[in-house]
Structures are given as C-alpha cells and as structure tokens.
Amino acid sequence: MSFLTYLKDGISLGSVYAIIALGYTMVYGIAKMLNFAHGDVIMVGAYVVLMLLTRAGVPGILAVVIAMAVCTILGITIEKVAYRPLRKASSPLAVLITAIGVSYLLQNIALLMFGADGKTFVDVIKLPSLSFGDGKLVISGTTIVTILACIIIMICLTLFVGKTKQGHAMQAVSEDKDAAQLMGVNVNGTISLTFAIGSALAAVAGVLLCSAYPIVTPYTGAMPGIKAFVAAVFGGIGSIPGAMIGGILLGVIEILSKAYISSQIADAIVFGVLIIVLLVKPSGLFGKNVQEKV
C-alpha cells in the first residue's frame, strides 16, 4: 500500500475522531465538564442502527436519523439526571466520576442486551468507490461519506455558533453563566441543547466508525471516545476548529504509526504526541489564552 492510501485512511479515521471530539469540546466549552460517557453514546448509536436495519428492515438513512434522535434523547437525559444535580457541587470531580459511572452503565446495559460478542455491522453507506492511478489509490464510498460528513458538520457548527442567536447564547454561557442569565439566556436549556447536538453527532460518528470497522461490541465507543478526547485536548479543548484539526491529525498519526512503525505501539505514539504538544503549548493547538481583565 502506498503512502497516499495510508494518508487517506488516516484522514478518514481522523474525521470520525473529529466528529466525536466536537461533542467533547462543545460540552466542555459550555458545561465545563468532561463527559466521559460521550464515547459510549457512539456505541448506542451503532447498535440502534444495526437493530433497525437487521430486525426492523428500516432503510439506512432513516435508521441513521432515528439513531440520532435516540442518542439526542439519551444525551439530554444523561445530562438532566446524572450531571445537572451535581453542577453546583463543591468539587468538579463529582461530575467527572459520575460521567465515568454513566459510561460503565451504558456499556453494561449493552452487555446485558446484546452480549459480549461482536456483531457484524451492516453496510449503511452504499456508494461506489473512486479509483485513481489505475487502482493504486482506491477511495471507498464510506471514506468519501465520512470525510464529507466531517466537513459539513464542521461548517454547520461554525456557522451555528458564530452567526445564530442561539449560538451566541452558547458562547455567552461558555464565558459567563451569570452574565448570560442576566441577558435572558436559559442556561439549563443551553446546556441541554449542547448535549443534544453532541449526542446526535455521536450517533453519526457511530455509524461512520462501524461502517469502516464493521464490528459492534459494548466497548466499541470506549477507545474512540478516549482518542477523541485526546484529539479535543490536542486541538485545544473548547475550540471547534481545534477539535476538527486535532481529530484529523490524531487519525493520520495513528494510521501512519501503524503502517510505518508498529501497530502495537501506535496508540502509545498517539498519546506521546499529545504529551509533547501539551508540554510545548499547554492550551492545545487552538486553545484560547483567556486573559482576565479586571
């Protein structure tokens, strides 16, 4: 396989990380918490699509839409039931530990319902491959859809946050919850909306991930979730373009490490790069250096 093929695979995997990282980074930016259950919402999305396709025979696109709706409701519910009561807790660790608890809860519910065996994911994306240079570089339909989805999501989110009234409210809440309330912004509603968007994106990420690596287990979301978190930190947590660039770089580094160095230590290299970036620029690549003015 050529370098270009690896690069393409890296960008594709990185696009999935980026979509997951967007959820992490938005929730962190607005609710100032790390939602470690975010990765497991991906797994729920993947199972929902799988069940709808294999058991109910729902068409692919519709199944994805339903999965997004299910994950949206799940995300809002998790926030409302598990995180909101702890928002004013004296230690931010309380909500962090709860998030880890929710993560295990989702994994174990999936384990009870579907068992530990991997289920083969079905083809949702049925697009022909593109071939370049006499078949030297073949880009599958899944890859094309993944990269396009990532770009479209990125553009839509940037426009939403930067141009719409609700987007400005999100930025206001992210910066100063009290001042935002004085403007008439419902902080709880804004946080719910953020979880809704992040979780809907997680469902999309679930479908894309399992289309590329077609096995679903209760732990499907765990590792990509952690990697996406790394991507979000890498890019500068709280930053939308940061999550995007962080995700894609992470995917590329991972695939290239696997190809040229060793597939066993690829993850170690990924985390090593994170450590180096954080040593050089602690706020991440696109991290904001917030200056307090008194």
């Binding site: 009234k165 400005h168 930025q171 001042a179 912004v185 917030v290 200056q291």
Partner: peptide, 20 residues
C-alpha cells in the same frame, strides 16, 4: 466588574442584550 462577553464582538455583546 462589567462581565462583558470578552470573546464576542462589541456588536454581538449588544445583540446579546436584546436576547429576549
């Protein structure tokens, strides 16, 4: 302490004032 939204533009801050 004023509490303006430092990342938003002056214009967007004023627009936030008319949020409702």
């Amino acid at each position: 302490g004023r509490r303006v939204f430092s990342q938003l533009s002056v214009y967007d801050n004023l627009k936030m004032g008319a949020f409702t």
